[in-house]
Amino acid sequence: MVVRFFVCFSFILSTICCFGQINVDKMRADYAAAVKDKKLCEANLKTLEAAANTATEKGYLAAYEILWAKHMGNPFSKLGQFKKGKKLLESVIIKYPDNIDLRFIRWSVQTHAPSFLSYSKDRLRDKEFLVHNLYKLPNPEARKIIYVYLKEANSYLKGEHIFSQADLAELSK
């Protein structure tokens, strides 16, 4: 009887501990699709709001906050939502400037943000950081997701923002 109690107690405790964990790989993989998929964006945003603890999780929380603005109707609400995500993202980058995911998120947001938001000053610096540091990301699947995103972005980038063949070769390491 006592053994059953401890087995059940251990199971419940481990379930509670694991319930709040975030699958960062899923958040990263869903990031591009969440731009067009309101339900996916909302689900991931709620998951991140409930349990984001690490710098990378907070970065993806900021990213999904910003993406959520795209799915809102009211322009003033959109702007407020964008600013909320931007503020969170910048605060996390200040604490963790060498976090590759954070720099990728900021690069992607600044690349896609409308010019009237005046949020593009770090694009080139983040681009260079990613070119020289993506290989340091320990998760090969994460590196692949980010690399593919950056490579596909080249089709709409202009001027100095385009990734050269040398940049792409460095990113693919």
Rank of each mutant, 00 (worst) to 15 (best):
G20F: 14
S115T: 15
S91L: 08
D25C: 03
C8V: 14
F129M: 03
T47Q: 14
I100H: 04
Y149E: 06
I162M: 13
K121M: 10
R123P: 00
D126H: 00
Y147E: 05
C41F: 00
V148G: 01
L137D: 03
V131S: 04
E57W: 06
I12V: 15
A33T: 12
N74K: 08
P138C: 02
N99V: 09
E57R: 04
N133L: 02
N74I: 01
A32H: 10
W107K: 01
Q21P: 01
T56P: 02
K58L: 12
E128K: 04
S10R: 08
L79M: 14
Y31Q: 10
I22C: 03
D25A: 08
R143C: 09
I146P: 01
A50Q: 13
E49L: 14
F19A: 13
G159W: 02
Q21D: 03
L45E: 05
Q21K: 13
F116T: 01
S115P: 04
I12M: 15
F116I: 15
K136M: 07
Q110P: 00
S115F: 09
C41M: 07
F19R: 12
V131D: 00
C41R: 05
K127C: 00
L168G: 02
A63S: 15
R103Y: 05
N53M: 11
F19G: 04
L150C: 03
K38T: 07
H132I: 03
G80M: 15
H161R: 13
F76P: 00
F76H: 13
A113P: 01
I93T: 10
Y31T: 08
I100S: 03
T56W: 09
V7L: 14
A153M: 13
Y135K: 14
G20L: 14
I105M: 05
L61Q: 10
T54P: 00
Q165E: 14
I12D: 11
Q81C: 12
S118E: 09
I100Q: 08
G159V: 01
L117S: 06
Y135T: 05
Y119C: 06
K95N: 13
W107H: 14
V24I: 15
K58C: 04
K151D: 12
V148Y: 02
Y149Q: 04
N133T: 09
L168W: 02
F163N: 05
A43M: 13
K95I: 12
Y60E: 01
K26T: 09
F9W: 10
M72Q: 14
T47M: 12
V131F: 10
N133C: 02
I105K: 02
S164Y: 01
F129D: 00
E42Y: 11
K87Q: 13
V109P: 01
Q110Y: 06
V3L: 15
Y147R: 03
S120I: 02
K38R: 12
F116Q: 08
W68K: 13
N139F: 06
L67T: 08
A153W: 08
S115D: 13
F5S: 06
R106D: 07
S164R: 00
A33K: 15
L124P: 03
V131M: 00
K58V: 07
G80S: 14
L13C: 12
E57S: 11
K121W: 03
Q165R: 12
E49P: 00
G85I: 01
E152M: 02
L79V: 09
H71M: 11
A63C: 08
L89C: 08
K86V: 11
K87F: 10
A169V: 06
G20W: 14
E141H: 11
K78S: 05
E57G: 10
D37A: 04
S14M: 12
L88Y: 02
E160L: 03
K58N: 15
